[in-house]
Amino acid sequence: MFHKKIIPIAVLSLFLLGTSAFPSRADVLRDAVQQQQDIATQKNQAQGKLNQLTYTADKMKAQLAQLETQIAAAQKLLDQKRTAYAQAQTLVISAQKELDQKQKELEDRQSALGKRARGIYESGQISYLELLFQSSDLSEFITRMEYFTKLVDNDRQLLTDIKSQKEQIAQKTRELQSRRDQAAQLQAQAESVNVNLDKTKTQQRVALDQNQKAIQASFDDVDRLEAEANAWSDKIRKMQAAQSARTGGVSGTISVWPVPGYYEISDPFGWRTHPITHKRSLHTGTDIVAPLGTQIHATGAGIVIMAGWNEAYGNMVIIDHGGGVSSLYGHQSRLNVTEGQTVQANQVIGYVGSTGWSTGSHLHFEVREGGNPTDPLRFFPN
Rank of each mutant, 00 (worst) to 15 (best):
A117Y: 10
D137S: 12
E130S: 07
Q89T: 08
L129Y: 13
Q36N: 12
L99M: 09
I93P: 00
Q101C: 02
A65T: 01
Y85K: 08
Q80V: 09
I142N: 12
E98R: 13
Q87N: 11
A84I: 09
Q70R: 12
Q96E: 15
K81A: 06
D100H: 14
Q125P: 06
L77G: 08
Q125S: 08
I142P: 02
A72H: 05
G48H: 05
Q103F: 05
Q89Y: 06
I126F: 07
K115D: 12
Q75V: 13
A32W: 03
A88E: 04
S123Y: 03
K59M: 10
Q80S: 13
M145Q: 14
S136C: 01
R25A: 11
A65G: 00
Q42G: 03
A88F: 03
D137Q: 04
Y85A: 07
Q35W: 08
Q42V: 01
Q96I: 07
K115N: 11
D100N: 14
K81G: 00
L29N: 06
L78E: 15
S24W: 04
R118Y: 04
L113A: 07
T69E: 04
K43I: 05
Q36A: 15
E122H: 03
A74Q: 04
Q63H: 00
S135M: 00
L129G: 02
A65C: 00
R82E: 11
A117F: 08
N44H: 09
A40R: 06
T41H: 10
K43G: 02
F141K: 11
D79K: 15
I39L: 15
T54M: 05
K115A: 13
K61I: 11
I120L: 12
I126A: 13
K49V: 06
T56S: 12
S139N: 15
K104N: 10
A57I: 08
T90D: 11
Q52V: 10
Y121G: 01
Q80M: 08
Q47R: 09
N51C: 04
E68F: 00
Q103W: 04
A40M: 08
E105Y: 07
Q37M: 06
V33T: 08
